[in-house]
Design a protein around this nucleic acid. Structure first.
Length: 561
DNA sequence: CTGGGGATGGGGCCC
DNA sequence: CGGGCCCCATCCCCA
């Protein structure tokens, strides 16, 4: 007994899920575009994907072998078994597809392309011929003898680059080359409004953000062989899928990115430059790093636990639910959408309240749980595209910038939160922490701090800093994360947050190759190698490499136990 | 099993 | 806008 359409229906469902980001657990980065997908599907389609996604949730494909538009077609093919017929399927397109399919070891697709090219009478796949300019088409040569990623990675960089250049020349039409560049430029502009405002300078936005995708998940097959610490994403599959799904959810709601099936999420630019080989850090790998590699799965589980307990960043936790609620098209209610950890027994039926409350109380002490507007909270059908809502007046705005501008038109009295019960600055734990910190550092002199906050009386040296501080009292957070939607008061914090989404760690340790999202972390880390312990406990003489550990230690001294 | 220490990640915020 | 520091939270190791 066999259901005739079972496989077809299954694929259909999976493709729909992909379009909505449901249960997607891997991000594929192609140039500046992000694609979400399901690991199982990719693994079932290609040995190459299978090996890549085994250790990584963020895959960065070699941009010389595949470009975003081609990869979109490929992804569609993987999920549907069909190559959409359209005018765009020129021979050039099939060549590009063939190259990419070979690179990704999608043998069926490669065979289809070869067949199509052969049918068009232009295929030189099986019998290399001389092209009009007398050159042998290296693309076709490659296609007939697919280069496995391992083979490719075995090439010297120079050879690889050369080969890529050859492939590019042969595979991509002038138009495609143009599109690639234009794509880069436009996506730099499609970065968050704030970033795009700064212009792209002809480079892709990632670099402006300090986001180096190639460093995160190097192209080629390195991930298939040995997983360097840097290639292990910090993001659990769970959080990755949350991010993607959540991103999709409000993309669909806000039409800001207008995702369609397989359409790349315009992250806001990527590197136009050729992907760089990963730094060879394996031989420097410390035992600790190896240990960390080992425990990575556990830390993923930990994030699941965090989600359960609502200790994930509030925006993430919240969108986890919102994504389920607000997906358009009906039929995708909460019951169908589940981004829970697989071992989550408790479920998220009441998870929205949990994540909203506990999630925020964790990181923000609960202070902003009622103060700040999240886009989803402001999302009402009546608001249309004006999803950035000002709480005091209820007006909606299409962008954070406009909301920001609007907020500034309010008077201070309107803007500041009159919550006497919560405005006991500093809070108790802050006082305690300050007591501890005061044992290490001295209190700032207030003499030169002429500019004081009218809300909490904190004083600052210059008006700009005061203004920056005052924004922390605002009702809104003007800088949303493009991936999870979490809002931030400072753009820099949001940018930093984005790095954690993407597992981007631009700051590498020269000693062991370990990578960090922040320079300061690297500085901190370097003391591990130098053995420097500049922080000394005045009570017991204990020395520490990090100030925070000294503070933690001091807490041990001062605690009643 | 427990507590302390080492190390790391993420957010807030000031400079 | 980046750097730096503070906070909290967490993990792992080890005594």
């Amino acid at each position: 007994m066999e259901l005739p359409n079972h496989a077809k229906q299954l694929l259909l469902q999976l493709n729909q899920q992909r379009a909505k980001g449901y249960l997607c657990d891997v991000i594929i980065v192609v140039e500046n575009a992000l694609f979400r997908a399901h690991k199982n599907i990719l693994a079932a389609s290609s040995i190459y994907f299978k090996s890549l996604i085994l250790h990584d949730n963020l895959i960065n494909l070699d941009t010389d072998m595949v470009n975003p538009s081609v990869f979109r077609q490929i992804l569609d093919f993987i999920y549907t078994g069909k190559l959409l017929s359209s005018d765009q399927f020129s021979d050039h397109n099939f060549n590009a597809l063939l190259t990419a399919a070979s690179y990704l070891q999608l043998h069926d697709l490669a065979a289809l392309c070869r067949k199509k090219l052969k049918r068009n009478g232009r295929s030189l796949l099986n019998k290399p011929t001389t092209s009009t300019n007398g050159r042998t088409s290296r693309n076709q040569r490659l296609s007939s003898t697919p280069v496995t990623p391992n083979q490719m990675s075995g090439l010297k960089d120079s050879d690889k680059t050369k080969r890529h250049e050859e492939l590019l020349k042969d595979d991509l039409s002038e138009d495609e080359m143009f599109v690639r560049n234009a794509h880069c430029a436009t996506s730099a502009n499609s970065l968050s409004p704030s970033t795009s405002k700064n212009g792209s300078n002809g480079s892709c936005g990632m670099q402006e953000l300090g986001l180096d995708l190639s460093k995160k998940s190097p192209s080629g097959s390195t991930a298939t062989e040995e997983v360097s610490p840097s290639s292990i994403p910090q993001e659990s599959p769970q959080s990755a899928s949350e991010s993607i799904a959540n991103s999709a959810s409000f993309d669909e709601n806000t039409n800001t990115q207008n995702l369609t099936s397989g359409e790349p999420m315009e992250l806001g630019g990527g590197e136009c430059e050729e992907s760089q080989p990963p730094p060879d850090v394996d031989q420097h790998k410390s035992s600790r790093q190896v240990a960390r590699q080992r425990r990575q799965p556990k830390s993923e589980g930990r994030k699941c636990e965090d989600a359960e307990r609502g200790t994930l960043p509030n925006g993430v936790a919240k969108r986890l639910n919102v994504a389920g609620e607000r997906l358009p098209g009906g039929g995708h209610g909460n019951s169908e959408v589940s981004f829970q950890c697989k071992d989550d027994e408790e479920g998220l039926e009441n998870g929205q309240e949990q994540s909203e409350e506990s999630g925020q109380s964790e990181s923000d002490g609960g202070r902003n749980s009622t103060n700040y507007v999240y886009r989803q909270e402001g999302f009402e059908p009546a608001l249309g595209d004006n999803l950035y809502v000002c709480i005091p007046c209820g007006k909606g705005f299409p962008s954070s910038e406009e909301l920001n501008a609007h907020v500034e038109t309010h008077t201070e009295e309107e803007l500041y939160i009159k919550e006497e019960e919560d405005d006991s600055y500093p809070k108790e734990d802050e006082v305690e922490a300050e007591d501890l910190s005061s044992q290490i550092t001295h209190v700032h002199s207030t003499e030169s701090r002429r500019f004081s906050c009218s809300v909490c009386n904190k004083s600052y040296k210059d008006p700009a800093t005061l203004r920056q501080h005052e924004k922390t009292h605002w009702l809104t957070r003007p800088f949303p994360c493009n991936i999870c939607g979490k809002m931030f008061t400072q753009r820099g914090t949001m940018t930093r947050h984005m790095r954690s989404h993407l597992g981007l760690k631009p700051f590498a340790c020269d000693e062991c190759g370990m990578r960090f999202t922040r320079q300061y972390r690297l500085t901190e880390h370097m003391r591990v190698h130098s053995g420097e312990k500049p922080y000394e406990c005045q009570l017991c003489g204990g020395k520490f490499t990090q100030q925070r550990n000294l503070i933690s230690h001091l807490r041990m001294h001062t605690s009643p136990s």
